[in-house]
Amino acid sequence: MKNSLLMLLLFPIELLAQAPANDEPCGAVTLAVVSGSACTAPVIYQWQNASFGYSGAVSPSCGNFTNTVSKDVWFKFTATAANASVILSQAYGISHNLAAAFYGSEGCSFLYGDPGCDDDSGPDNYPQLSYFDLIPGQQYFIRVWQTNGAIDTGSARICVVSEPLAPASAVTGINTKFPSAGLDVNGTMKIRGGTPGLNKVLTSDAYGNASWKAVPVASQVSFGAYILPSFSPSIACCSFTKLVFAEAEAAGVTNLTNGTFTAPESALYHFDAAASYAVSIAGTNVSLRIAVLSPANVVVASYETRENNSSVTTERSLTSSVTVRLTAGQKVEVQFYASNTTQINNTGTLGIDRKNRFQGYKIN
């Protein structure tokens, strides 16, 4: 009699503690795929007494899932087309914070793939999973759990529809099952609207309005010029004389007029100069400088190479180089100084020898 009474007392407790039928994948509740986008026949389920997470599948990456805390239940459906959405929603008066994961399968004991996972993309922040590349006839499994493992009971609605829905959180993916941004594109992108064109970029104004803009092409500022071998100017005593480099080394030389370079824009520039000369009086001091002038032709800086007490010679040379930042409109020219009248030595083969030259280019 005591044993019978004890069994009667324990029986309701055992019944109350029984796990739901879909506690494991092989007991998963089958969901029919509803044609269209409306969840017209949802399955209402409960997870009371569900056991801790099933360890035979890859753990989901969302919804605070851990095998020792999260209590999950399982559903399955057979894809009827490439597209489908799994939608969960509130069943009765109490809302629950749920999460769901999606698995491919070769039966209930072999679930594979990196599970798609979501906890708040659907209506009222319930999970919603949308797919566009399912295999018709393939069976898929859905794992659902309460994100707060301390809540051991509750209910919700679940259904599968054939037309994928845009997530309520406005997260859209292209060529990806699991978008992680407002627009998540996996692959190349082509925008036809507006006025696209070669070397244009899509830019935004302060309000987020996009438009196509041409990429500014940096100006190519460079030049090279020399003094013809047939011309050997004489340098008068005791003052700097500008050397006129009138022959372009290549076609298209710009910004150089009568031996003077004018900066077309504020930037960093580099210049090289070389001069060959003859000394007829011993002890002559000579100097070659690259001079920076203001727009009003006032020297504001100079970069000089000197040779003092030169001996008599028919040919000697000086070179000078400088990297300098100029403002638009500033000028650069090459000047030569001698303490006695000196001749620029410009002998050589016409069109080949370029002993006296002035070169430059913009760096940035």
Score class of each variant (00 low, 15 high):
S169M: 12
G116R: 11
V69Y: 11
A181M: 14
S310V: 07
R143D: 06
V332H: 09
S311Q: 14
Q138W: 07
W145C: 14
G259L: 09
T147W: 05
I44E: 15
G197T: 00
V322L: 06
C238M: 00
F178Y: 13
Q343C: 03
W145A: 09
E307K: 15
L350M: 14
Y126Q: 11
A218I: 02
T40P: 06
Q146D: 13
G107T: 06
S121P: 10
L202I: 00
Y92P: 01
N297M: 09
S35R: 08
T195K: 04
Q146N: 14
D119W: 12
G252Y: 02
V286D: 07
D184P: 04
Q90P: 10
P127F: 09
S4A: 13
G194P: 01
S317K: 12
N22E: 05
N49D: 08
Q139I: 14
F358L: 08
L31A: 04
L228K: 00
D124N: 09
A181C: 13
C238Y: 00
Y126D: 12
Y103T: 04
G252Q: 05
A82W: 06
L31N: 04
C39V: 10
L198N: 02
T254Y: 03
S35L: 03
Y103M: 02
A170G: 10
D119L: 10
T172Q: 15
A99E: 07
V299E: 14
E14F: 07
S59A: 15
L165F: 07
D120T: 12
N285S: 08
T241E: 01
T313C: 07
Y92S: 11
F141Y: 15
L8R: 06
S155L: 10
S266F: 01
V300N: 14
E307F: 10
A81W: 06
R357P: 04
K213A: 10
L129H: 04
T323C: 04
D353S: 06
S61R: 08
A150G: 14
F52P: 00
C39L: 12
G113C: 03
L228A: 00
L111W: 03
V29Y: 05
S311K: 12
G113P: 05
T319Q: 13
P264S: 09
V69K: 13
N345K: 02
P264Y: 10
S302C: 02
I158F: 02
S59V: 12
G137W: 10
N64I: 07
P295T: 02
T314Q: 15
L243I: 00
D205I: 03
A17D: 08
A168V: 07
S239H: 01
K362S: 08
Y112V: 13
S310M: 13
A273S: 12
N356S: 08
D205W: 00
D124F: 06
Q335W: 02
P229Q: 01
V298C: 06
Y303R: 14
T257H: 04
F102T: 08
S4D: 13
N22D: 08
A263I: 11
E333S: 14
A17V: 02
F11V: 05
I363R: 03
S232K: 00
T327K: 15
V312S: 12
